[in-house]
Lab assay of single mutants.
Amino acid sequence: KRCPSCQAPIEKNEGCLHMTCAKCNHGFCWRCLKSWKPNHKD
């Protein structure tokens, strides 16, 4: 998949759905690609 903010390629190996892009530091949900918020729901 690609970061929804900067389009950098992102690879997920394991862990939770909260992802942070290493290039732009954007926090997002791996499943729905929406911005991550404390009360995030898919």
Rank of each mutant, 00 (worst) to 15 (best):
Lys1Trp: 00
Lys1Ile: 13
Lys1Thr: 04
Lys1His: 03
Lys1Gln: 01
Lys1Glu: 02
Lys1Arg: 00
Lys1Asn: 13
Lys1Ser: 01
Lys1Cys: 00
Lys1Met: 08
Lys1Ala: 00
Arg2Met: 15
Arg2Leu: 14
Arg2Ser: 12
Arg2Ile: 15
Arg2Pro: 07
Arg2Tyr: 14
Arg2Glu: 14
Arg2Lys: 13
Cys3Gly: 02
Cys3Leu: 01
Cys3Glu: 02
Cys3Thr: 03
Cys3Pro: 00
Cys3Asp: 11
Cys3Ser: 05
Cys3Met: 08
Pro4Val: 13
Pro4Ile: 11
Pro4Gly: 12
Pro4Arg: 03
Pro4Leu: 12
Pro4Tyr: 14
Pro4Asp: 00
Ser5Asn: 15
Ser5Gln: 15
Ser5Val: 14
Ser5Leu: 08
Ser5Trp: 15
Ser5Phe: 03
Ser5Pro: 04
Ser5His: 05
Cys6Ala: 10
Cys6Ile: 03
Cys6Pro: 01
Cys6Ser: 02
Cys6Arg: 01
Cys6Phe: 00
Cys6Gln: 02
Cys6Glu: 05
Cys6Trp: 01
Gln7Cys: 11
Gln7Pro: 07
Gln7Thr: 09
Gln7Trp: 09
Gln7Arg: 14
Gln7Glu: 13
Gln7Asn: 00
Gln7Val: 07
Ala8Cys: 07
Ala8Arg: 08
Ala8His: 14
Ala8Leu: 06
Ala8Ser: 10
Ala8Phe: 11
Ala8Lys: 11
Ala8Met: 08
Pro9Asp: 05
Pro9Met: 12
Pro9Ser: 04
Pro9Cys: 09
Pro9His: 05
Pro9Asn: 10
Pro9Leu: 04
Pro9Arg: 10
Ile10Leu: 05
Ile10Thr: 09
Ile10Val: 08
Ile10Asn: 02
Ile10Gln: 06
Ile10Arg: 02
Ile10Tyr: 01
Ile10Gly: 05
Ile10Cys: 08
Glu11Ser: 03
Glu11Arg: 02
Glu11Tyr: 15
Glu11Pro: 05
Glu11Leu: 05
Glu11His: 08
Glu11Thr: 08
Glu11Trp: 10
Glu11Met: 04
Lys12Arg: 07
Lys12Gln: 11
Lys12Ala: 13
Lys12Val: 07
Lys12Ile: 02
Lys12Met: 06
Lys12Asn: 12
Lys12Thr: 10
Lys12Phe: 03
Asn13Trp: 11
Asn13Thr: 14
Asn13Leu: 14
Asn13Gln: 10
Asn13Met: 11
Asn13Cys: 09
Asn13Gly: 10
Asn13Lys: 13
Asn13Ser: 09
Asn13Glu: 11
Asn13His: 08
Glu14Gln: 08
Glu14Asp: 09
Glu14Val: 04
Glu14Cys: 11
Glu14Thr: 09
Glu14Ala: 11
Glu14Asn: 06
Glu14Gly: 10
Glu14Arg: 04
Gly15Met: 02
Gly15Asp: 06
Gly15Pro: 06
Gly15Trp: 07
Gly15Ile: 15
Gly15Val: 03
Gly15Gln: 01
Gly15Ser: 04
Cys16Asp: 15
Cys16Ser: 15
Cys16Phe: 08
Cys16Tyr: 10
Cys16Trp: 08
Cys16Ile: 15
Cys16Leu: 09
Cys16Thr: 15
Leu17Lys: 00
Leu17Thr: 06
Leu17Asp: 11
Leu17Ser: 07
Leu17Tyr: 15
Leu17His: 09
Leu17Met: 10
Leu17Asn: 00
His18Pro: 03
His18Tyr: 02
His18Glu: 11
His18Gln: 13
His18Lys: 15
His18Val: 04
His18Leu: 09
His18Gly: 07
His18Arg: 11
His18Thr: 03
His18Met: 13
Met19Tyr: 00
Met19Asn: 08
Met19Lys: 11
Met19Phe: 02
Met19Ala: 10
Met19His: 03
Met19Val: 14
Met19Pro: 11
Met19Gly: 06
Met19Gln: 11
Met19Arg: 05
Thr20Ile: 14
Thr20Tyr: 15
Thr20Ser: 05
Thr20Asp: 07
Thr20Pro: 09
Thr20Trp: 07
Thr20Cys: 03
Thr20Ala: 07
Thr20Leu: 09
Cys21Tyr: 03
Cys21Ser: 05
Cys21Thr: 07
Cys21Ile: 00
Cys21Ala: 03
Cys21Lys: 02
Cys21Asp: 06
Cys21Gln: 02
Cys21Val: 01
Cys21Glu: 08
Ala22Trp: 09
Ala22Lys: 05
Ala22Gln: 00
Ala22Thr: 09
Ala22Ile: 10
Ala22Phe: 00
Ala22Ser: 07
Lys23Ile: 03
Lys23Met: 05
Lys23Ala: 09
Lys23Ser: 07
Lys23Leu: 05
Lys23Trp: 01
Lys23Gly: 06
Lys23Thr: 09
Lys23Asp: 06
Lys23Arg: 11
Cys24Glu: 08
Cys24His: 04
Cys24Lys: 04
Cys24Val: 02
Cys24Phe: 02
Cys24Met: 02
Cys24Ala: 03
Asn25His: 03
Asn25Ile: 08
Asn25Leu: 06
Asn25Pro: 04
Asn25Tyr: 00
Asn25Gln: 12
His26Lys: 05
His26Thr: 06
His26Ile: 04
His26Phe: 13
His26Tyr: 09
His26Gly: 11
His26Met: 09
His26Pro: 08
His26Leu: 03
Gly27Lys: 12
Gly27Trp: 11
Gly27Ser: 14
Gly27Tyr: 03
Gly27Phe: 02
Gly27Pro: 08
Gly27Glu: 15
Gly27Gln: 15
Gly27Asp: 14
Gly27Leu: 03
Gly27Cys: 12
Gly27Arg: 13
Phe28Trp: 06
Phe28Val: 06
Phe28Glu: 09
Phe28Asn: 13
Phe28His: 15
Phe28Cys: 07
Phe28Ala: 07
Phe28Asp: 13
Phe28Thr: 06
Phe28Gly: 12
Phe28Leu: 06
Phe28Ile: 04
Phe28Met: 04
Cys29Val: 00
Cys29Thr: 00
Cys29Ala: 01
Cys29Trp: 00
Cys29Lys: 01
Cys29Met: 00
Cys29Pro: 00
Cys29Gly: 01
Cys29Tyr: 00
Trp30Ser: 09
Trp30Glu: 11
Trp30Gln: 10
Trp30Ile: 06
Trp30Asp: 11
Trp30Pro: 13
Trp30Tyr: 00
Trp30Ala: 14
Arg31Lys: 15
Arg31Cys: 12
Arg31Trp: 10
Arg31Gln: 14
Arg31Asn: 14
Arg31Asp: 13
Arg31Ile: 09
Arg31Gly: 13
Arg31Ala: 10
Arg31Val: 13
Cys32Val: 00
Cys32Lys: 01
Cys32Phe: 01
Cys32Gly: 01
Cys32Asn: 02
Cys32Met: 02
Cys32Leu: 00
Leu33Val: 03
Leu33Asn: 03
Leu33Gly: 06
Leu33Tyr: 02
Leu33Ile: 02
Leu33Thr: 05
Leu33Lys: 07
Leu33Asp: 06
Leu33Arg: 03
Leu33Glu: 11
Leu33His: 05
Leu33Trp: 02
Leu33Ala: 05
Lys34Gln: 08
Lys34Met: 04
Lys34Arg: 06
Lys34Cys: 04
Lys34Glu: 12
Lys34Leu: 01
Lys34Phe: 04
Lys34Ala: 03
Ser35Phe: 14
Ser35Thr: 12
Ser35Ile: 03
Ser35Ala: 12
Ser35Asp: 11
Ser35Arg: 04
Ser35Gln: 12
Ser35Pro: 15
Ser35Lys: 08
Ser35Gly: 08
Ser35His: 04
Trp36His: 11
Trp36Arg: 06
Trp36Ala: 12
Trp36Pro: 12
Trp36Asp: 14
Trp36Lys: 13
Trp36Met: 09
Trp36Cys: 04
Trp36Asn: 04
Lys37Asp: 15
Lys37Tyr: 10
Lys37Leu: 08
Lys37Met: 06
Lys37Thr: 13
Lys37Val: 12
Lys37Asn: 06
Lys37Glu: 14
Lys37Pro: 10
Lys37Ile: 10
Pro38Met: 04
Pro38Gln: 08
Pro38Glu: 14
Pro38Val: 07
Pro38Leu: 07
Asn39Arg: 10
Asn39Met: 08
Asn39Ala: 11
Asn39Ser: 11
Asn39Leu: 11
Asn39Glu: 10
Asn39Tyr: 04
Asn39Phe: 14
Asn39Val: 09
Asn39Gln: 08
Asn39Trp: 07
Asn39Pro: 12
Asn39Ile: 09
Asn39Asp: 14
Asn39Thr: 13
His40Ala: 12
His40Asp: 13
His40Phe: 09
His40Arg: 05
His40Met: 13
His40Lys: 05
His40Glu: 14
His40Gly: 09
His40Ser: 12
Lys41Val: 14
Lys41Ala: 12
Lys41Leu: 05
Lys41His: 14
Lys41Asn: 08
Lys41Pro: 15
Lys41Arg: 08
Lys41Ile: 02
Lys41Trp: 01
Lys41Cys: 15
Lys41Met: 04
Lys41Asp: 00
Lys41Gln: 14
Asp42Asn: 15
Asp42Trp: 01
Asp42Gly: 07
Asp42Pro: 08
Asp42Ala: 09
Asp42Phe: 01
Asp42Val: 04
Asp42Met: 01
